[in-house]
């Protein structure tokens, strides 16, 4: 393949890629009508925070599984009917269990989930402190670190001075 053919292919590739990406973007768009603009905001918030039971690691907003479509419709109709966010979540939890909440309530079953990260953080800090304590402490760390830049500069100056003296015969 000569270089001209290759560059021609490149010209073709860019619009092709763009067309493909457009198709994906269009597929993801779903028109949802609301009577009030605030409802749309709440709808977006809720569908981002609720989890699709079928597709495990996607929220309702991102998933196109039939069950997510149903659940989005339920969220929408409950919003229009004037239910609160908490009521809507409860409605879905009653059917699909706490699994659908990306932020599950703190209870016995979720204690480990909520508790483990801070616990591990504390363990990490504890280990760090222990290791620091074990290291032999330098005599006067505060003084030395403050004095160091000055002394380094002095040493460099002295070195330079001595070199210059050597060069001048």
């Amino acid at each position: 393949m000569n270089s001209r053919a290759r560059s021609g292919l490149r010209w073709l590739a860019t619009p092709l890629m763009a067309a493909l990406l457009c198709a994906v973007a269009v597929a993801g768009i779903e028109v949802v009508e609301f009577s009030e603009p605030q409802l749309r905001e709440r709808y977006q918030g809720l569908t981002e925070e609720l989890r699709c039971p079928k597709c495990q690691n996607q929220n309702l907003a991102d998933s196109n599984a039939p069950i997510s479509v149903d659940m989005r419709a339920q969220v929408r109709s409950m919003l229009e009917a004037g239910h609160s966010d908490a009521q809507i979540k409860q409605n879905l939890v009653d059917r699909y269990s706490e699994f659908v909440l990306y932020r599950p309530a703190l209870n016995l079953a979720t204690a480990l989930l909520w508790g483990l990260p801070p616990l591990l953080l504390l363990v990490g800090i504890g280990l760090l402190v222990m290791l620091r304590r074990r290291q032999p402490r330098p005599a006067a760390p505060g003084l030395r670190s403050a004095a160091e830049p000055a002394s380094t500069e002095q040493r460099v100056a002295a070195l330079l001075a001595s070199q210059q003296q050597e060069r001048q015969p």
Binding site: K54, P66, R95, S97
Partner: peptide
């Protein structure tokens, strides 16, 4: 339309 299915929490 999967109405009872929804109330049951059917996901597949």
């Amino acid at each position: 339309r999967g109405e009872l299915g929804f109330d049951l929490g059917v996901y597949g």
